[in-house]
Each structure stands twice: as structure tokens, then as C-alpha cells.
Design a protein around this nucleic acid. Structure first.
Length: 1037
RNA sequence: GCCCGGAUGGCGGAAUAGGUAGACGCGCUGGUCUCAAAAACCAGUGAGGUAAAACUCGUGCCGGUUCGAUCCCGGCUCCGGGCACCA
């Protein structure tokens, strides 16, 4: 019997489950290793082959690390809150929990079939009250914390209150919103409500008014990328820019630590770069500009204080508060009109119109604080209220946007920086600004001659001395909006008293999601939770009706896995001190600015609280590439085009003796072909069309003295020779009937195989379900049954086969190219699937899914099986001592596979296994001492066959718990080396030499070789380069 | 516009330290076995060139460094991803 993968795989999956082989507990005697997959959102579609790619890689590492003696934590769970289940609930009334549980069951079934080594006792679901209790708990901690900039960490709000009570808030250095100063006395005299109001801007979870994209029809707030031109992408409903009270998390407090932390973790440069951009730190200073004839000042933020002498105007964001106070009477109408125009456009739309320059002069002037010159103040929407101070000093000579603006409105451009060793030039002739942060200050008073970097700090120092500015760092990062007007999410553990939010006490957690009658917002636009009956505390205070966003539950899940059943704590001290943080995290790159940044923030906060013990949650991150779909195409024939093409092939190049032309026009009539020599017209049309037209056409042709042939398309299917014969007769001048009437037949679809000549010209590609295609050959019978209208389909074949085309595109239902892992497991088994997914290429690279190659892996698995079996298919191992060659194969493979797994090069390890099996097959090796270690070696990749073979070898225990074989260098030492000998870098021949001889011996051996003479003849040997064990190069000339 | 990746046979890819380019697999061609097919096995397979060899060319393009470059440097082209009036 050949290898029976279906039974074998089922048997061992059952065995592993029953014996809880993958269950893991704290074991201080062993080093720990934590391998984590980004847990999935269980969608209704189930897994396709792209999902398990990362899971397989992490599973290989987990199994490998176990064999290497590590205690491996390898859990899995579900990111169970998500829009699809809620959307489905809105449409059907099915509770999202029911949908979600169903989908989870399906996911679990699929995952189990692949043979993953998860410890399922640690499974978490974010929608499980026992889990989200701790999401809510963390929110409470955030609410009761503030960020102390002096200590650079989160601290309890009580400590802040204690400071307020003794000295007010003047000396508090906190990451906070806008605050007014108050004294201890004022604090003590405040009402409870006032105190709460003053505390709010300090909290790490706080409520604030935020401008959001509110969509009344959907009853929710949309993200910027869910809105296009004022309409929701989904549904096309109007979206308003609206100020709403929302919960926010003060992630900005951690901006610097999030940035610095990137230096300490092993993530790809691209993800780190994305996060750096997202945080968007810029270092500079603020400067205050006095406004002429008023007491007012405008503060600007700039990264280039060194260019202040070149600031020739100012620009404010249209919504800047000072605009109303400074606009001159004469400019009022224009300014108001401009503000109205820009107001309703979202930030995103403003950004997309980058190229257009627009703006209006306010009529007011400010004084440049260094040159003391008055400069005009403009408003323009290229200045954003949301960044810096909403105002800039414009330095057109050294900022490209200011330059464009100045040119457009003809404002002065003053050069204040020159490149090294260059003289200033007339800016009137500049085509672009000089933006680089390199050069020497000129026309700049006291900083003249300084280099840019020195000039920056000199100006900041001077500004501080004069009291008109300070050094300042700005971030692009915004606080995270934490409220969603949705049902399917974690309820906030918050109630309102006297209009102020308070948190529930910890013993009231979890606050469970209530039942509601419909999953929609209320008529008054309140979130769905407002429908819940009795949605208030015991005391009768109303509870928060928003729910938390998707990233709430996924931000700390890796910590919960460490101690998932703990009812008293998020996770125990003992657990976190043992498991620490994630050693290897695998998942998609699409979470770069979402989950991966929130989770780092969440972890840092818990670190400040002393709960997490590492500042960074994920030491090493791998982003698996996307698996793209490989669609198959069939080519549907356009019958008229095809008939024309086929006939033209018969007529062209005087094949029938006379010259034909395509497209003959006579008056308003058009015909397909015309031979002027014999006045012969040929027209191809559908039978039905000809039935109607034939008489009129014939009449016309007679009048004009043309010979006419009307050929129905259907004739091209089976009467091609007759057609040609009729044309020949017509050419020969015989009487030929223009149109032979026939019974009309039903239309049927027809398809042409890919490589039939002319196919491109008369067919249209159509996606066909990939399950009907094997190695690009269409299963015609299955295809006919695929859709009802294909039942009578006809085919133009090549070599008796229908060959499909293909295209690489996104895997999606509509392209019929979704490859589902279950099907492949049924056909080839899980081990083959696992190895094939790894074999496709480097884990981080995107690649198309192509089932063709899987056969090769399947062959490899059976070849491995045959190593252990004789010709009669009976298991047979020999206890003889292996030969050196056999040892060498084993140890070479150990070395290669170990190296490859350690550097996550899974595809090359698969090659190494194949080479190993090929070589052992060649050696006809069935020796226990070689093959048993080989089983262990391959078990991370192909756990099922490995377990089966391990037991066949007579072992009672599981292969999972063995020790990874150790490479013994002795077997790798070569007696001799085959050196490639090259002349001037081109390899010419090879020479085998003993491995241990000296360089000069190698040289003389090579020079003595007779091939050498051929290449040195008539030339001089100038140099011999010998790289021991590698190559010999002889320079001649 | 800016930032980050990438480009190697018909296809997926390999070459870990500047040292035999194309490992391994797919596909294709021919063969063995078979009544036949499947499976399996064997041989060949970068391009040009040749009866076969020799030889020439060849890692997106142009140039450089080097005894030697897929790898390092300079300048481009194309593809993928991210960011985008961020002061």
C-alpha cells in the first residue's frame, strides 16, 4: 500500500488532541519561547490558502523550538468583534454572537485539519465576557492614569490629585489637553463636577469634542478612508463633518517611546518606517509674531527657525481663531467667501487637491520678530488647523509650498540659505525653492555664516531669551478615537453622573453586552446600546452607550494567552515573569499602523503599571506576503468575429486565386469581404438576421450587378468545406445561390482553446472556477455542469484538450479563484499542503497560488515514505552501521535545515529535505541510524507522516517531544575539493585536489595541469588567486 | 512629490561571507515498464552556436570599483507597498 495520508493524518490529530501533546505550562527548568500568530477575524467565508501561510511558518518554528528544548507557548484565538457579523445582524436580525460562533467552529475545523500544534486550552475570544472583562479593566486603568512627562510614564490619577491639593497644577508637567492654571486653594474650593472637568484633560482615556465624519444614515462615525467626496463609500450616504463627544486614548503621550522602541525590536525596515511616518516627529520651535495695530500675537511652529529672516509673509488656516479679529474691512467679504468655500471640504479632500494654489489676503500685517519688518498675513487651506498651531511663517525661498504660493500671488522671496561655497542668487529666476537642511545662513543678521544646524539652535536660544518662542517637538500622531456607535463591541465600564463620566468598580466587571431588539441606532441617532432596557447602574445612573473599537480587544491578547483562565487578574505575575513577551510574531503587514501600534501603546501602558514586564510586546515580527489568486480563463467565442476570422484566413493572400478585401462599403451598406475582379461580395451574419435581410440584399446585389454570398455563422461549425466550395464556384462564375435557407438552430455558447490561432481576435476571456481546471486543462464535462447555460457548450480544442489561460489577481469569490485548504488536504494531505505553502518562496514575499507545483511535494512525501518501505510496501529498516556517505547526507541536512529555520528561510529548508531524500534513495539507505534522526528533522514541516514513521520505527512516545539531532562536523569534512579554475574570472575547467594541501601546492598543481596550458599559451601568468575550499583564479595577459 | 521594497530560465524560486549563476520543484521533450493508461523510474532542458564539441552571450538598463560583481558604488527604467499641503 502506498502512503495513506487521510487515515494517518486523522489518527495522529486525534492522538495529539487526546493526549494534550501541545498543552504547555510554566516550567522554570526550561527556557521559554513564545510564538504567536495574529489571531484571525472569523469571517463567514472560512480560510483560503493565504491565511494558513503564516500559521504554518509559526507552527514550524514552534515545533522546532520544542525539539530544541524550549518550553513553547503557541496559542490561538479569535478577534471576534467585527463589522461583517454586525452588518449581517442588521440585515437578518441574527445575533452577531450566533454568526460569530458558527464561523469560529468552521475556522477551528479547518485549522485542526492542517495539524497545528496550538495549545487550545488557551484559546481566547475577544467577545467572551471572561476575556473582555480585562479589556474593560484596562480601560478603567487608563481612565485613572495620567502621563507624567518628568518621569516619562503613566501614573495614578490620585497622585495628580494630591499635587493639585497641595500646589495646584502650575508645575505639573503632563501630557494633556488644553488646561488653565489653578492654585491648590482654587482646587479645594471646586465642586465635584468642576474637579472632574479639570481632571479630564489629564486622563489617558478621556472624553473630548472631536471633529468626526458622521453618517446619519448609517448611524455611525466613519474613518477618513471610508468617506469619498462627502459620501460614505459603503452605501453612498451623505457624511457630515460634525463635532461629537468621543472617548479618546492619549497615545500621543507615548509618541517618543513608541518611536524609540522601534530601535530595540527586530521588525522589517518597511514596517518600522511606516510607524515612524505615522508618528511623524518633527523637531523645531515656536515663534510668536505680533500683529500690527493690535495686542494680538500669532504663534507658529517651524522646523526651520534658521530661516526666520526669510519669512516674508504668514499664512493661517482658514479656521484659525484669530482670522475674525484681524481681517481688514476691505478684505472681509473675500475672506468670508474663502472660509465658506473651504469649510465643508474634509481634510482628505483638501489634501488630494495639493496642486491647486489658493488663498486670500486678510489685510493685516504681522512683524517678523527678527527683522522687525511688517509682513502680510494670508489665509490658505494648505495650512492645516490640525497640525502645529494652524499658522505658519512662510519662507518661500526654502519651502516648496510657500514658494509656489509666493509665485502665484507675487509675494517677495528672500534667500537666507546658500549651499556651501555658493553665492546668493536672484530668487526671481529660481524655478524651485531650496529646501535642503544643508547650507549657510545669509541675509540673516546675527546668524549670518552659521551652518543650518547651528543656526537653528541659535535662533531658538535667542527666541527664548527674548521671550518670543521656545524649542518644540511636534507629532503627526493623533490621539486614538476609542468610541464606536455600534452594538458589536465591548461596552464601556462607564456611567454618567451629573453629566460627568465615572467608571464602574472592578467587582462590577465584566459589564456584559445587553440584549437589544434591533441592531440599529435609535430614531434619535443614539447608538444601538441606547435601545437596551435598563441600561443603567444599580443606582440608576445611565451607562455609556458607545462601544469600544476593534483594536480594543486585540491590543493585549498576547498577554492574556499567558494566563487565559485567570478570573482574578488580567494575568498572573508568575505567568508574565516566565513568558515575558512574544519572541516571534507572524501576521500581515496591513496592521502596521493599526493593531501593531495600538498593541505597543497598550503594552507600554501596562508596563508603566508594572503589569507587563517588557516595554515592547513583540520582539521579532515577520509579515507574511499575500498569496494572490491564480485565475483560470476560458475564451468565449464571439461567433460572428470568429466566422469572419476563419473565412479571412481562407480568402487572404489570393489563396483562392483572386484578391479579397475586408470591409467593403457601398452607400450605407457594409459587407465583410469583396473581390473586385469577380465582383463578389461575401457577408457573414447570424441565421436569423439573414432570414430577414436575404431578399432585400439579393435584390440590391442584382441591381448593382454583384455576385452575393450570404453565409450564416452556423455553417462555420460543420460545413466549412462547403462554404469554401461555394466561394470557389462563385469565383469561377458558376451560378451560386446567394442564400440557402435552413432551419434555425438554438444559440449555444462556444469556447476556444488558448493556443488556437486567432483566438485573441474573436474571443473574450471569462473567469472559470479553478476547481474545474487541472494544470490549465479544462474538465469539459464538469464545466458543462457548472452553470445551466453551459450545458450545450461547444469547444474548439487543441490536441484534444481545452487549454485555459491564466492571470494572477486577488483571491476572490467573483474571480472563481479561491483555493480552499480543505480541498487540497483531501487530495494531497495536510503535510503536503504545509510543505507546499512553505516551498512557494520566501515567507515575506507575495506570490501567486499555483496548484501545479503541489504534485512535486506530494511525490516527495511518498518518496520519503518509500525510504522506509521495501518493494512489497512493507516497513523495513536495517540496523546496519551507515556508511560515511550516508552519515554525510544526514548531517548535511541537519546543518542546512537548522540554519534555514533559524533565519526563517522555510522554502530552502524544503529543498534541503528533497535533496536529502533524493540522495538517500539513490544510496538505497534504509538504516535506522540515519532515518530516525531524519524523521525528527522533518517533523516540524510534516508532523503527521513523521509521527506515523516514528511509531512504525517502534517508538511508543510522540515525535513532538524528541530532541533535534545535532550536526556532527566530522561527517562534513571533505577529503578532497573540486576547485573551479578560472582565467580572468571565467571558469574553464575543474580540478580535484586534496582538501588539506597548502596554497602553493595548489598553485603548482594547477599550473601543471594540462588544461592550463591551453589558456596560458602565448600569455603571461600575472597572478594566481587561491581561495581555499572555494576557487582558483589565474590572471593572464 | 517623498519614503521603503523588488526585478535572476517557459513558471515558483536558489546562490547565508564579493568566489562554479540557475540548487530544489513545476512544466516541457524523449525513453523504460504496461494491451493501454495512471503511478513510478531514467535522460535532457538559460540563449546562440555545433553532427557533437569547442566557443560566445547571459541575473531590468548604462557606467564604475575588483583578479573576480546577481551581490559593492554612481546614474536611470519598470513593478509593488506606504505616506502625502505635517510647516
Amino acid at each position: 500500500m502506498d502512503y495513506q495520508f487521510t487515515e494517518v493524518e486523522k489518527k495522529w490529530q486525534e492522538y495529539w488532541r487526546q493526549n494534550k501533546v501541545y498543552k504547555v505550562d510554566i516550567d522554570s527548568g526550561k527556557p521559554k519561547y513564545y510564538v504567536l500568530d495574529m489571531f484571525p477575524y472569523p469571517s463567514g467565508a472560512g480560510l483560503h490558502v493565504g491565511h494558513p501561510l503564516g500559521y504554518i511558518a509559526s507552527d514550524i518554528v514552534a515545533r522546532y523550538k520544542r525539539l530544541k528544548g524550549f518550553n513553547v507557548l503557541h496559542p490561538m484565538g479569535y478577534d471576534a468583534y467585527g463589522l461583517p457579523a454586525e452588518q449581517y445582524a442588521i440585515q437578518t436580525g441574527t445575533h452577531p454572537m450566533i454568526t460569530t460562533d458558527k464561523n469560529i467552529a468552521r475556522y477551528r475545523e479547518q485549522l485542526d485539519k492542517i495539524g497545528f500544534s496550538y495549545d487550545w486550552d488557551r484559546e481566547v475570544k475577544t467577545c467572551d465576557p471572561a476575556y473582555y472583562k480585562w479589556t474593560q479593566w484596562t480601560f478603567i486603568q487608563l481612565f485613572h492614569s495620567w502621563y507624567n512627562r518628568d518621569t516619562e510614564r503613566a501614573e495614578p490619577i490620585e497622585k495628580l490629585i494630591a499635587i493639585f491639593e497641595t500646589e495646584g497644577n502650575a508645575n505639573v508637567n503632563a501630557a494633556s489637553g488644553d488646561i488653565n492654571h489653578f492654585s491648590a486653594e482654587q482646587w479645594l474650593q471646586m465642586t465635584e463636577k468642576q474637579r472632574q472637568q479639570y481632571l479630564m484633560p489629564y486622563r489617558l482615556a478621556y472624553i473630548d469634542d472631536t471633529i468626526v465624519n458622521w453618517c446619519p444614515a448609517l448611524g455611525t462615525v466613519l474613518a477618513n478612508d471610508e468617506v469619498s467626496e462627502g459620501l460614505s463609500i459603503r452605501g453612498g450616504y451623505p457624511v457630515e463633518r460634525k463635532s461629537m463627544k468621543q472617548w479618546l486614548l492619549r497615545i500621543t503621550a507615548y509618541a517618543d517611546r513608541l518611536l524609540d522602541g522601534l530601535e530595540t525590536i527586530d521588525w522589517s525596515d518597511s514596517i518600522k518606517e511606516i510607524q515612524r511616518n505615522w508618528i511623524g516627529k518633527s523637531v523645531g520651535g515656536t515663534l510668536r509674531f505680533a500683529i500690527r495695530d493690535t495686542e494680538l500675537e500669532i504663534e507658529v511652529f517651524t522646523t526651520r527657525p534658521d530661516t526666520v529672516f526669510g519669512a516674508s509673509f504668514m499664512v493661517l488656516a482658514p479656521e484659525h481663531e484669530v482670522v475674525g479679529q484681524i481681517t481688514a474691512e476691505a478684505q472681509l467679504a473675500e475672506v468670508e467667501e474663502y472660509i465658506r468655500r473651504t469649510k465643508n471640504r474634509s481634510e482628505r479632500e483638501r489634501m488630494t487637491e495639493v496642486k491647486k494654489v489658493s488663498g486670500v489676503f486678510t489685510g493685516a500685517y504681522a512683524f517678523n520678530p527678527f527683522t522687525e519688518q511688517p509682513i502680510p498675513i494670508w489665509i490658505a487651506d494648505y495650512v492645516l488647523m490640525g497640525y502645529g498651531t494652524g499658522a505658519i511663517m512662510a519662507v518661500p525661498a526654502h519651502d516648496s509650498r510657500d514658494f509656489a504660493f509666493a509665485r502665484y500671488f507675487q509675494l517677495p522671496i528672500i534667500q537666507v540659505i546658500t549651499q556651501k561655497d555658493e553665492e546668493p542668487t536672484d530668487t526671481a529666476f529660481w524655478e524651485t525653492s531650496y529646501d535642503a537642511k544643508e547650507g549657510i545662513a545669509v541675509n540673516s543678521g546675527f546668524i549670518n555664516g552659521m551652518d543650518v544646524m547651528d543656526a537653528i539652535s541659535a535662533v531658538v536660544t535667542e527666541a527664548e531669551k527674548k521671550g518670543i518662542g521656545t524649542a518644540k517637538i511636534n507629532y503627526r500622531l493623533r490621539d486614538a478615537i476609542f468610541s464606536r456607535q455600534r452594538y458589536w463591541g465591548e461596552p464601556f465600564p462607564v456611567y454618567y453622573k451629573d453629566g460627568m463620566p465615572y467608571t464602574l468598580s472592578e467587582n462590577e466587571l465584566p459589564l456584559e453586552l445587553p440584549a437589544i431588539d434591533a441592531f440599529l441606532p435609535t430614531e434619535t441617532g443614539e447608538p444601538p446600546l441606547a435601545r437596551a432596557e435598563n441600561w443603567k447602574t444599580k443606582e440608576g445612573y445611565p451607562l455609556e452607550t458607545n462601544t469600544m473599537p476593534g483594536f480594543a480587544g486585540s491590543s493585549g491578547y498576547y498577554l492574556r494567552y499567558m494566563d487565559p483562565q485567570n478570573n482574578h487578574q488580567y494575568f498572573s505575575k508568575e505567568a508574565v515573569h516566565y513568558w515575558k513577551n512574544v519572541d516571534l510574531y507572524i501576521g500581515g503587514a496591513e496592521h502596521a499602523t493599526g493593531h501593531l501600534i495600538y498593541a505597543r501603546f497598550w503594552n507600554m501602558f501596562l508596563y508603566d503599571l508594572g503589569l507587563a514586564i517588557k516595554p515592547e510586546p513583540f520582539k521579532k515580527l515577520i509579515n507574511q506576503g499575500m498569496i494572490q489568486g491564480r485565475s483560470n480563463l476560458v475564451y468565449r467565442i464571439n461567433p460572428e468575429k470568429m466566422a469572419e476570422y476563419v473565412l479571412w484566413e481562407e480568402l487572404r493572400d489570393k489563396k483562392l486565386g483572386v484578391e479579397f478585401f475586408q470591409e467593403f462599403k457601398s452607400g450605407s451598406r457594409r459587407f465583410d469581404f469583396y473581390a473586385p475582379e469577380v465582383r463578389l461580395i461575401i457577408e457573414i451574419k447570424r441565421q436569423q438576421a439573414l432570414d430577414k435581410l436575404a431578399t432585400a440584399y439579393e435584390q440590391w446585389a442584382k441591381e448593382q450587378d454583384y455576385t452575393l454570398l450570404l453565409i450564416p455563422i452556423r455553417d462555420f461549425l460543420d460545413q466549412r468545406e462547403q462554404i469554401v466550395q461555394r466561394i470557389k464556384d462563385a469565383i469561377a462564375g458558376k451560378e451560386v445561390e446567394a442564400f440557402v435557407e435552413k432551419e434555425s438552430i438554438e444559440n449555444f455558447p462556444a469556447f476556444v482553446s488558448k493556443n488556437i490561432a486567432g483566438r485573441e481576435q474573436y474571443s473574450d476571456p471569462i473567469n472559470v472556477d479553478i476547481s474545474l481546471v487541472h494544470n490549465d486543462i479544462l474538465d469539459i464535462e464538469a464545466f458543462k455542469k457548472w452553470q445551466p447555460h453551459l450545458a450545450d457548450a461547444r469547444f474548439v480544442l487543441e490536441d484534444g484538450k481545452y487549454i485555459c489561460g491564466y492571470e494572477v489577481e486577488k483571491m476572490s469569490k467573483s474571480k472563481f479563484n479561491v483555493q480552499n485548504p480543505d480541498e487540497l488536504i483531501d487530495r494531497y494531505g495536510a503535510d503536503t499542503l504545509r510543505i507546499y505553502e512553505m516551498f512557494l518562496g520566501p515567507i515575506e514575499q507575495s506570490k501567486p497560488w499555483d496548484t501545479q507545483g503541489i504534485e512535486g511535494v506530494f511525490r516527495f512525501i511518498r518518496k520519503l515514505w518509500r525510504l522506509f518501505h521495501n518493494d512489497q510496501h512493507t516497513f523495513s529498516l536495517s540496523d546496519e552501521t551507515p556508511t560515511d556517505k550516508e552519515w554525510r547526507v544526514l548531517h548535511k541536512t541537519i546543518r542546512k535545515v537548522e540554519d534555514d529555520i533559524e533565519r526563517y528561510s522555510f522554502n530552502t529548508a524544503v529543498s534541503a529535505f528533497m535533496i536529502g531524500v533524493n540522495e538517500l534513495t539513490e544510496l538505497k539507505c534504509n538504516k535506522r541510524q540515519i532515518l530516525e534522526p531524519f524523521i525528527i528533522l522533518i517533523s516540524p514541516y510534516a508532523p503527521h507522516i513523521a509521527e506515523e514513521l516514528w511509531h512504525l520505527c517502534g517508538h511508543e512516545d510522540t515525535v513532538v517531544k524528541q530532541t533535534f539531532p545535532v550536526c556532527d562536523e566530522r561527517y562534513l569534512i571533505q577529503q578532497s575539493v573540486v576547485y573551479p579554475v578560472s582565467f580572468n574570472g571565467k571558469t574553464r575547467f575543474k580540478i580535484e585536489l586534496p582538501a588539506d594541501i597548502e596554497t602553493n601546492e595548489i598553485e603548482s598543481a594547477v599550473l601543471a595541469h594540462q588544461e592550463t596550458k591551453r589558456w596560458t599559451e602565448g600569455k603571461q601568468v600575472r597572478k594566481i588567486i587561491v581561495i581555499p575550499q572555494r576557487i582558483i583564479n589565474i590572471v593572464v595577459g
